[in-house]
Nucleic acid binder design. Structure first.
Lengths: 159, 159
DNA sequence: GCGGTTAGACAACCTGGTTGACTAATATCT
DNA sequence: AGATATTAGTCAACCAGGTTGTCTAACCGC
């Protein structure tokens, strides 16, 4: 048992991947075949007020062009709409559709269920302790999602 | 404070990114400018016996072609050599160079130092507890590194 | 009204993956 | 031995998701 710093990093990555892969799987089984976590995050950001491409890009720490590509996908799948802003002719105001909110809701539900599974395995107090420490270590600093590929790709044999 | 499943995922990702970004920064400062964690992992896998492109690919859960591309980079930078296998004319046997081992050593050292910093912040016992739980939850299952981009990319304002 | 800024679109390009096709060498089977 | 199958590596085409740069149209301030 090495307990090296590198192992620690791998453990964290492993934990993350485990959750995300399982969640993506489950989301697919519930009928949202091609939703990737990055879509979920993007929809969430839009719902939270990043309602145009530029702001979404800022929120996601990617260029506005990259954000626009993501938006195009979300729009095509019916998770967001894009209509002209009456107050500013340049902007295209983004709005999350009912379907979009539904994906969000299900995504949350799935993640919560996965967390519950973890609670069952190591106990509530222990998991909360783990979260508390991680929060301390990671700090409030926003987690950047600007990792091309990676969470957007389809997964092999995860679950 | 939501303590939702999604937050947990973000915490894990944040922890990982924090370590990896800092490590990459530090490695760069020590003169290994363009080493990304993925290179470290690849060298490590080669040193551990995945000494041809096919096996390296399997180890890293990527195609042999992708592995070959990585190898080309490692070779160009002098971290590995590739010579004919006297026993099997098809294979090109990989070997980690002294420089390659040096990168590995420094990488380890850096990660260990980062872990020490964490120990200082939350205490040895707590960190070990965290590691123990994560190990339980993630299981022995090999962590897949097949995330295109992401750890290979250069980092913005991390540290 | 005019110059500067801002939102979005378009295009070219990069990285790091993928699959598919092909060659050469080794293994296996009759 | 010889025919056949497998295996390692390479090449090429392609894809996803990002980047920068350029351009247009609309807004803002003087």
């Amino acid at each position: 048992m090495s307990r090296s710093g590198a192992d620690l990093a791998l453990l964290l990555l492993g934990g993350f991947r485990s959750l995300v892969d399982d969640a993506t799987d489950e989301l697919a089984q519930r009928g949202y075949q091609d939703v990737r976590p990055v879509h979920d995050f993007a929809i969430r950001a839009i719902a939270a007020g990043a309602d145009d491409a530029t702001r979404l890009g800022q929120r996601l720490s990617v260029s506005k062009q990259a954000a626009a590509k993501t938006i195009a996908v979300l729009q095509e799948r019916g998770y967001v709409t894009r209509d002209a802003d009456p107050l500013d002719g340049r902007r295209k105001r983004l709005q999350v559709t009912d379907l979009g909110f539904e994906v969000l809701r299900q995504g949350e539900e799935i993640f919560d269920e996965l967390r519950d599974q973890w609670v069952r395995r190591i106990g509530r107090a222990e998991l909360e302790r783990l979260e508390k420490h991680l929060a301390t270590l990671v700090g409030g600093s926003a987690v950047r999602l600007d990792t091309p590929g990676w969470m957007t790709r389809d997964l092999g044999g995860s679950s």
